[in-house]
Structure formats: C-alpha cells, structure tokens
C-alpha cells in the first residue's frame, strides 16, 4: 500500500516540477516585458504565474521531502497534519494567483463589456481541499470567459492557445475536485494542468513572434 502511495507521490512531484518550470518561464517573460515598459498589466500576469510556480515548487519540495526523506521513520504519525498545512497553503496561493489574473482582466481588458460581472470570491470554507478546487474553478471561470471573449472578438495571434490553455486549467481543477471518485482523475488533472501551461506558453511565444 505504501509503495503504491510513494509511486503516486513520485509522479505527482515530477509533474508539479515540470509545471513549475513552465510557470517560471512564462512569469519571467512577463517580468522582462514589465521591466522594459513598466505596464501594470504585465506585472499582474507575471505575479500571477510567479505565484502559481512558487506554490508548485513549495508543494513539490515539501511533499517530496516528507515522503522520501525527512519524515522517513515517523511517516504515519507526522505526515497528516504536515501535508494538510502544505495543501492549504498551496491552495490559498493558487487562488491568489488566479485573483491576480482576474484583476488584470478587470483593470485592463482589451474590450470593455457593456456590464462587467462582479467578482466576489467566496471567503468561507477554506479548510477542505476539494472546496479550494471548486473555488479555483469559480475564480478561474472569469478568466476563461474573458480570454475566450478575446479570442472570439479579436482573433489576435496566440489568443486561441491562451484561451484553450485557461480552459484546460479550469478542467484540471474540476478533475482535481472530483479526485475522491477515482484516483485516476487526479493524474488526469495533472495532465490537464501541464497541457494548459504548454498552451499558454505556446500562445505567448506565438504572439511575441508576431
């Protein structure tokens, strides 16, 4: 049983580290653009992807350390509260990163809609991880709607990849939320997350190539 768990965690940590690397690349691209131009839009996107990447790195390192090193002998006793805290921190930072994206779309949309939808992130029930996933879905829904609207309205270079990327990110959170039904959904969620970051990266590179 423990060996199965360790294998799952191993794959989890590797996928999280790959996603972290992609997030860092996207964040640094926006940071470089921000440092050149000083635009707050670029700063918000850089901060959003940076927070996402940071959360992924912290989670991968702490979960990896917990399972494979530091807590080797007292695995059973010490793991549960420790992992709970890491997951809680991870989820809070991820939702915060999505709020940065929402802020960018609220403050600097390419197209202003007739009526802006109000964004009221739920501030309660922050103690159970599936709820965090569902909260991410709620917050991310605004980002998905805005990026899809942009693709339909402007069709600018890279916009289709970016919109598809945010849809895949939304899907990944839905899959994570449904993990209690089947552990395979957890890996499907990771695959969707990885795909989402690759799509966003592709969109960004395509747009900058002109």
């Amino acid at each position: 049983m423990l060996s199965i768990l360790l294998n799952i965690i191993r794959i989890d940590v590797v996928l999280e580290l790959v996603s972290f690397a992609i997030c860092v690349f996207i964040s640094l691209s926006f940071l470089r653009a921000y440092l050149r131009l000083g635009s707050s839009t670029l700063a918000l996107l850089s901060a959003g992807f940076g927070l996402m990447g940071g959360a992924m790195l912290v989670r991968a390192l702490t979960i990896g350390a917990a399972f494979f090193g530091l807590f080797g002998r007292e695995l059973g006793r010490s793991l549960t509260p420790y992992l709970f805290q890491v997951e809680l921190l991870y989820s809070v930072v991820r939702v915060t990163a999505y709020l940065f994206f929402v802020l960018a779309y609220v403050l600097h949309p390419a197209f202003r809609r007739e009526a802006q939808a109000a964004v009221v992130p739920p501030a309660v029930l922050l103690i159970y991880n599936p709820a965090f996933e569902l909260m991410s879905v709620v917050v991310l829904a605004y980002v998905v709607a805005a990026s899809t609207y942009n693709w339909v309205r402007s069709g600018s270079k890279g916009s289709v990849s970016v919109a598809a990327g945010f849809w895949a990110l939304l899907l990944s959170h839905l899959l994570f939320a449904l993990t209690p039904l089947n552990i395979l959904l957890y890996f499907a969620g990771h695959a969707a997350q990885l795909l989402s970051l690759l799509l966003i990266l592709w969109g960004a590179l395509e747009a900058m190539r002109g």
């Binding site: 691209s29 926006f30 653009a33 050149r36 131009l37 635009s39 839009t41 670029l42 996107l45 960018a104 779309y105 600097h108 949309p109 390419a110 197209f111 805005a146 990026s147 609207y149 942009n150 693709w151 402007s154 600018s156 270079k157 890279g158 916009s159 990849s161 970016v162 969109g203 960004a204 395509e206 747009a207 900058m208 002109g210």
Partner: peptide
Amino acid sequence: RFVEEFQRFARLARAFGLEI
C-alpha cells in the same frame, strides 16, 4: 527600440485579451 518592444509586448498582452 521602445516602439518595437511595445508592439511586441502589446501583441503578447492582446493574446491574453489585455491592453498595456
């Protein structure tokens, strides 16, 4: 150079549906 970089990064922001 500023104009060229602005155009490049404006395309990047537009791919996300944002203005800089």
